[in-house]
């Protein structure tokens, strides 16, 4: 193998970023969004009055957190077509694309982590805030929506974003589905051209730059948004 070939990287930039990174960022963004929404619902269910619903949600969170992500991605990809068949009553397994399957998996997985963050956030709001909201005549759902959750998201935003940075890295696990994410795109070129060192080094640098820049941003944000009580 010849010396480090920068030209190889330069030639591949278009494919790496427009195909690979775009997929990675799209998946990260949508999975984070879906994860936060589903996670918030789980968190609210867990601290609701219903013991049954609460323990179902708790069971789900504990189950997901006890499984390796890569296993779930793989398993889900093969299971979803049959699940779809069963749900729709179709005669054949329903074809689900790699993107949809990966997205659903990440949302389901991240929701468990986000729900723990939101739950901790809800617990950190003084009980008197809810009492004050109730005393003004707000219903529980209104108190949650207008008083508790806005404070939770403000306090927890840095943690939620940090978790999203982890998610950004974790999306590379979709390579088990042979999907062209950023890592997948690089791996294809590396295999094709026999330039493994260049490609994997470049991928590492890019992941580092993206993640490090983002966490520095989060750090600044953290100092910025401390809510005075």
């Amino acid at each position: 193998m010849s010396s480090f070939d920068f030209e190889e990287i330069h030639r591949s930039l278009g494919y790496l970023f427009f195909d690979g990174m775009r997929f990675t960022l799209t998946l990260t963004f949508l999975a984070a969004l879906g994860g936060v929404v589903l996670g918030t619902i789980l968190a609210i269910i867990r601290q609701s009055g219903s013991r049954l619903l609460s323990s179902i949600a708790a069971g789900y969170v504990n189950l997901v957190r006890a499984l390796p992500l890569v296993l779930v991605i793989f398993w889900f990809y093969f299971l979803v077509p049959y699940l779809g068949q069963w749900l729709t009553g179709a005669t054949r397994p329903v074809h689900v694309g790699g993107f949809a399957s990966a997205l659903i998996t990440f949302i389901a997985f991240e929701a468990a982590y986000f729900s723990e963050i939101v739950r901790a956030g809800i617990a950190s709001i003084p009980r008197g805030q809810e009492a004050a909201a109730m005393a003004l005549g707000l219903r529980s759902s209104q108190a949650m929506r207008y008083v508790i959750l806005p404070q939770v998201f403000r306090i927890m935003l840095p943690v939620l974003l940090t978790q999203t940075i982890v998610l950004f890295q974790d999306t590379s696990l979709v390579y088990v589905l042979s999907i062209t994410d950023f890592l997948g795109a690089a791996a294809q070129i590396a295999e094709r051209d026999g330039r493994l060192v260049e490609m994997y080094s470049f991928v590492a640098v890019v992941y580092f730059v993206f993640s490090f820049t983002a966490s520095q941003g989060v750090r600044r944000l953290r100092a910025h948004i401390a809510v005075p009580h």
Binding site: G128, Q129, A132, A135, P150, Q151, V227
Partner: peptide, 13 residues
């Protein structure tokens, strides 16, 4: 029924 609390409980956000 108006209520005033020991720790004010204004909504900080």
């Amino acid at each position: 029924v108006g209520m005033v609390f020991q720790h004010f409980e204004l909504f900080p956000h």
